[in-house]
Design a protein around this nucleic acid. Structure first.
Length: 226
DNA sequence: AACCAGGAATGTA
DNA sequence: TACATTCATGGT
């Protein structure tokens, strides 16, 4: 994939949608909690669940660590997979409490690659979630490859669609400046664009990248979701 | 009323 | 490595 195109795409998305100012959460802990809650879930449901956690005074590492899993599960009811997500939140909170005394600054003081590996070692944190935490909570240069990014690049005809996560992440990082704000903004723009134009059922009419998109120009290979 | 939403863990071959 | 299954709620 020609890397220059990834810079051009960023410019076009930014011009079309404007700065998104992500992550839409208050503080690093809420970024982490939100990153878990939003897995395979619409963001509005995450907001409801986060409000419920706050009302129940369950929006701190200490509280999550101490609370019964059932209470967490009940509070986050509006998101899907609540039992599993409650377990994830508790295990992450437990790790942060035990290893860092609940101090996120101490976790984030670690070198980027070590930090990424440590996050990946935690139950409930896969590659996308780890990168979201790196970029939006730890403010480290990384890139979040999500379903929208994969879908957009597939429709642009730039990738086949089944590439490994790391391969796509590397393509973005190699093509872009080492700028956390830009990398975070790029992912936000891809999501915004995806929600408006590049859903499972595409709205290509009026799409700002339609001119460089293969969608509608010719029949394309079936894309994968993931 | 099926389909989709800002994934990850687990199991199988 | 590559797939399939499971988890669960809310909006369209």
């Amino acid at each position: 994939m020609p890397t220059n195109r990834l810079r051009t795409l960023y410019e076009r998305l930014l011009a079309a949608h404007g700065p998104q100012g992500w992550w839409p959460a208050d503080g690093p802990l809420e970024v982490i909690v939100g990153a878990i809650l939003t897995q395979r879930t619409a963001w509005r449901n995450v907001e409801r669940a986060t409000d419920r956690l706050r009302s129940a005074e369950l929006l701190s590492i200490e509280a999550i660590d101490r609370a019964a899993a059932d209470r967490i599960s009940e509070a986050i009811r509006p998101v899907g997979f609540r039992v599993g997500k409650a377990r994830k939140l508790k295990q992450i909170a437990s790790h942060l409490k035990n290893r860092y005394g609940g101090d996120l600054d101490r976790l984030f003081a670690r070198p980027t690659e070590e930090l990424r590996e440590e996050l990946l070692g935690l139950f409930g944190i896969g590659e996308e979630t780890a990168d979201a935490i790196l970029v939006y909570a730890a403010r480290r240069p990384s890139f979040v490859v999500d379903a929208y990014a994969r879908r957009l690049l597939t429709r642009l005809g730039w990738i086949e669609g089944r590439e490994a996560y790391q391969e796509l992440r590397k393509a973005f990082l190699d093509a872009l400046p080492d700028d956390v704000a830009l990398l975070g903004e790029y992912h936000a723009l891809i999501v915004r664009h995806g929600q408006e134009y590049c859903r499972a059922a595409p709205v290509c009419d009026g799409c700002p990248v339609r001119a460089i998109c293969a969608e509608g120009q010719s029949a394309r290979a079936p894309e994968v979701s993931r």
